[in-house]
Design a protein around this nucleic acid. Structure first.
Lengths: 177, 177
DNA sequence: CTAGATGCAAACGTTTTGCACCCCG
DNA sequence: CGGGGTGCAAAACGTTTGCATCTAG
């Protein structure tokens, strides 16, 4: 399912570039592959050395230019964690409505979805006289585990308690613990 | 109510600085006054020339340092509108739970509150095993008026239809038009 | 008197840009 | 063959920092 969807992603990118009369060069293809293969948020400056290590050598300028295009295509989204840091999130292709919860202690990011939030955001937006185009919900929280036990178990290692990373409980039953 | 609450704000700032063993110098006082007198979001680099025009000449370094302290005190909050832009919002003192809706067309920002969003955010956060500390909800939308009539009436001039700026409908009845 | 604050200018990290050369279609 | 793409290095941008000087308490 991974390489398969990667193929689909490459196709989507190619289609987007074509639709704008742009070329899908090997640099762009390599970059798209790299970005969407590992599903991690990234800062361009962090991505560059990693990308160069694994794949070819693409110039900084080209990388920035391609990222902009991918954002424009809707395949990549810019998110913000505060501190003026510019992060890019490739996971909106898989889960177009997810939100981010950030552990104030370890800065780990948990992606989650909630249909109720979505519906509510829609309602509010329309009530204010707008048609919603995009939403970004970011919650900062302190990990209960961490506060009680002193370590951020949830994320540092233990995968047993709950999902390891990305996308947690995704539907129904909203009840405050 | 404006100068009165400004006095209260100055007091709060002074108390914060004092509590940390810091001084409330005339530069800091002038800056706090300037920031909380006009309730606008600002980027430091935009604020500096305006501030210098109206009030005294405070160095860039001092301005940045003071802004950091105000954020630390909780009186000022950093918000993000995308594009890696770092904005500061002084309005969390008046309405601690507000969110932002941004018109994708004119980039105008509408502040709004909604208790339901708040409650839901709390529930979700706890469900994920966290205690919420801060939330940031940003919605981008296209103005219906603009789309239908060609101009962004709601914001460009007309104050008749709905509130001019900041904080709109704030409670009850959520219904999707 | 002294810890802390200020102002300046230089340094910083990230992103953008101008330009010559290159290559895909 | 031509319009876009690339890579390089330089510039731009917003922010932070080191340091000498000043000032509030």
């Amino acid at each position: 399912m991974d390489s398969k969807s990667l193929k689909a992603i490459l196709g989507q990118a190619q289609a987007f570039f074509a639709s704008k009369g742009l070329r899908f060069t090997k640099q762009r293809e390599a970059l798209v592959t790299f970005i969407f293969r590992n599903h991690e948020h990234f800062r361009p400056e962090d991505l560059i050395p990693k990308f160069r290590k694994s794949d070819g050598a693409v110039s900084r300028a080209t990388i920035y230019r391609t990222i902009s295009l991918l954002v424009e295509s809707g395949m990549l989204r810019e998110i913000s964690l505060g501190g003026g840091e510019r992060l890019y999130d490739p996971n909106f292709l898989k889960s177009p409505h997810h939100n981010h919860l950030i552990c104030v202690d370890c800065r780990k990011i948990v992606e989650f979805e909630d249909p109720n939030i979505d519906i509510m955001q829609n309602c509010i937006t329309r009530r204010l006289g707008f048609s919603p185009t995009q939403k970004a919900l970011r919650i900062e929280g302190s990990c209960d585990m961490l506060r009680l036990l002193g370590t951020c178990k949830n994320f540092k290692g233990a995968k047993g308690t709950r999902g390891s990373r990305h996308k947690s409980t995704s539907g129904k039953a909203i009840r405050s613990r």
